[in-house]
Amino acid sequence: MIRDRGNIKWTAIMLPEHVAAVKQEVINLEKVKQPILDEDRLTEIEMLIHEAMEYNLLLEFKLFKKGYIDSIIGHTHFIDYIKKEFRVKDNNEIVIKIPFQKIVDVLKV
């Protein structure tokens, strides 16, 4: 019976720099490009946010951050058209500033 140690055998002969480079490459493969929203979807998102502000609905904001999609759940507190950002209160009553250009999608919770 042959008992192979798999990847452990190969990482033993690799330099630490190579192991770090391979790990970084795996991380880079998981990254995505920022989706571009069309005008129709932007209009739907804007209407959803205004409706949520009026009726104090809970929303999930999907944001693009450094190659990954992150989500924040909260109530839209204020829309700042000058700074082009939303201010969202999460469950802990913390106000989070979200730039318009980082939003990928908005959903009702």
Rank of each mutant, 00 (worst) to 15 (best):
E44G: 01
K102W: 07
I69C: 03
L15R: 13
M53I: 08
I27T: 10
Q34H: 14
W10K: 10
E25N: 07
I103P: 07
D105R: 08
I45K: 10
D38V: 03
D70Y: 14
A12Q: 15
K23V: 04
N7V: 08
R87P: 00
I49N: 10
R5G: 09
I13M: 10
E54F: 09
D80S: 08
I36K: 07
H50G: 04
P99E: 06
I2S: 06
V22Q: 03
L58C: 06
V19F: 00
L59G: 05
V104C: 11
I73H: 04
D70N: 13
Q101L: 13
P99G: 09
G6C: 01
I8H: 06
V32Q: 11
I2H: 09
P16A: 03
K108R: 13
N91Y: 05
H50C: 07
N56M: 07
F64N: 08
L59A: 10
V22A: 08
F78C: 08
E46N: 15
L29M: 15
V104Q: 09
I69Y: 01
E30G: 07
I94D: 15
F61V: 03
I49R: 13
D4G: 13
I94H: 14
I82M: 04
L57V: 01
D4P: 07
D38P: 02
I69K: 03
G6M: 00
K33H: 09
H18I: 05
R3K: 14
I2Y: 05
F86T: 01
K31I: 01
E25G: 02
V22K: 08
K108I: 09
K62T: 09
E60N: 04
I82P: 00
I73C: 10
N91D: 09
R87W: 05
E85C: 14
I79Q: 08
L48V: 01
K102T: 12
F78D: 07
E93H: 12
E30D: 12
V106W: 02
F100K: 06
V22S: 04
V109R: 15
E46C: 12
N7G: 12
H50E: 13
L48Y: 00
L37R: 09
I45W: 06
K83F: 06
D38W: 00
V26R: 12
F86G: 04
H18G: 11
E85K: 13
